[in-house]
Amino acid sequence: MKAPLPFLLVLLAVPAAWQLAIWCFEPKPAFLPPPAMVAGVLWTERSALLGHTLVTLGEAVLGYAIANVFALGCALFCFHVGGAERVLAPWLVALKNVPFPTVASILVVVMGDSLGPKLIVVVLVTFFPILANLNKGLKTADPVLIDRLRTLHATRWQIFRKAAWPAAIPFYLAAHEIAFTGSIIAAIVAEWLFAQRGLGFLIVQASTQFRTDRLFAVTLVASVVAMLVYGLVGLAERRVLRWQRA
């Protein structure tokens, strides 16, 4: 297991550099609170932090699961219906580039402070990288293999399952690296915009209360969560693509 080592390095180097900065520059705690102060917040507010983290994680994972279902459906549709991708692309790009604060205020007005708007933001952020990678991956399917399957009179679905999908898997996994961690950020942004709980809400609350120590604590928690998620994707990748290292 080589992967955790660089992560361990981050876990050691960041606090070290941080403390060093405190000693060298003596910044005001309003800008850079000392690590010990932040650690204190992490400890005393651990149960609240955990609760809010779970809220964020729940939104992120659920939204991400929905994004995957949509993206897979869309990719399947594009694969089976020739020209669908060209027709869909402008719609998807337009939808992708809607600025979130605008969407957010509309969503929260229409749907209230429910799970819905947060899931939609997560889906909007993560859907496109997944779909783009899937589409690209499906196209890398070996044409010779497809010809071979055609001579066996394989159905379109069989060609997808046996040739295109295996080719798309590495791309799909690569998408997770970006999109799964992105789902955490997206959930945080959504909460930051309109929620009453979750890490994003804590960020707003901490900043309006001028609690830089809590702000840093939340940021740390969010980073650790993102790193764990990234690690999880890496683990899944190693498992699924273990044939590459055989």
């Binding site: 149960s47 609760g51 779970l54 729940g58 939104e59 994972v61 659920l62 709980r197």
Partner: peptide
């Protein structure tokens, strides 16, 4: 994680 947790205090 979405359903199984009681909402924490804000």
């Amino acid at each position: 994680s979405a359903c199984g947790r009681a909402p924490p205090p804000a």
